[in-house]
Simulated scan of single mutants.
Amino acid sequence: MTDGERDLEALMLVDEPEFERVLECVFGVQPHESRTYTALSKAPGSTTAELATDLDRDRSSVSRSLGTLEEKALVERTQRLLDGGGYVYQYTALPLPETKSRMHRAVDEWSEQVHERIEEFGE
C-alpha cells in the first residue's frame, strides 16, 4: 500500500474532512503546503515574501512549499520584471475548479481500484 493509499484510507474515517485535508491526502502534500495553496488561491500573483508574511512563516519554508506545489502542478510561477531592474517571482494557484476536478478524478480512480479488489475477494 502506498502512502497516498494510506492517506485516502485515513480520510475515509473522517465524517466531514476539510478541503485542505482532502488536498493533502489526494496530492500527498503536507499541511503547511495545503495552507500555502489556500493562501495563494486567495491572493493570486503573490511573491514568496508576501506569502511568508500572510502565513507568518519564514521565506525559505514558504519557498519549499511553493516548490512542492509547483511540482504537483498546483501552482504556477511567473517572472515579473521590476522597474529598478531585476525580477521577482509571482505565484498563482491552480484555479479551484481545476483542482477540484483533479481531486475528483484521483478519488474516482482510487475507488475503482478498491471496487476491483472487492470483486477479487473469495476467488
Rank of each mutant, 00 (worst) to 15 (best):
V26F: 04
Q113H: 07
L66F: 13
L11H: 14
R6N: 13
K42G: 00
K72P: 03
E50Q: 13
E76N: 04
R64E: 00
P44V: 05
S63I: 01
K42C: 01
L8E: 15
E112T: 12
E116T: 07
S41T: 04
E119F: 01
E16W: 02
T47F: 01
A43W: 12
T48I: 06
P17T: 02
D54W: 10
T48N: 15
T99D: 11
L81W: 10
L11I: 07
L11E: 12
A106K: 14
S61Y: 10
S61F: 02
L51D: 06
R117E: 04
E70Y: 13
R59N: 10
P95E: 09
D7G: 00
L40N: 02
A93R: 12
S111I: 04
P17L: 04
S41L: 10
V14R: 12
T53P: 03
L82A: 13
E9R: 03
S60G: 03
E112Y: 12
L23R: 14
R59I: 03
L11Q: 13
Q90K: 06
R80Q: 12
T99A: 06
F121V: 08
R64W: 10
E116V: 03
L81H: 09
A52G: 03
Y37E: 06
T48V: 05
S46Y: 09
D54Y: 07
R21H: 10
V22I: 11
S60E: 14
V26S: 10
H104V: 13
D54H: 13
S46H: 11
E119C: 08
L23F: 09
S101E: 12
D83N: 11
R6E: 15
E5N: 05
H32S: 07
V107R: 14
V75W: 14
K72A: 05
S111F: 02
L96K: 14
S41P: 04
E112S: 05
L40F: 00
H104L: 15
H32R: 14
D56K: 04
M103W: 01
E20P: 05
F27Q: 11
Q30R: 12
H115A: 07
T78A: 13
T99C: 09
R117G: 11
A52M: 02
L8M: 15
R117I: 01
E18M: 01
T78N: 13
Y91S: 00
T48M: 05
D54G: 10
F121P: 02
S41Y: 11
E112M: 07
H115K: 06
S60C: 03
V62T: 14
S46K: 11
L96E: 07
E123D: 06
G122S: 11
L51F: 01
Y89R: 15
G45N: 02
P97H: 14
V26T: 06
W110Y: 05
T38M: 11
H115V: 02
L8R: 09
E120T: 09
V14K: 09
L8I: 09
P31Q: 00
D3S: 07
L94V: 05
L82M: 09
T38E: 09
K42V: 00
A73D: 07
L23C: 05
R57F: 05
R35F: 12
G4S: 10
E18H: 05
Y91M: 06
Q79N: 06
E98S: 06
V75K: 08
S65W: 09
H104A: 08
R57A: 14
S60F: 08
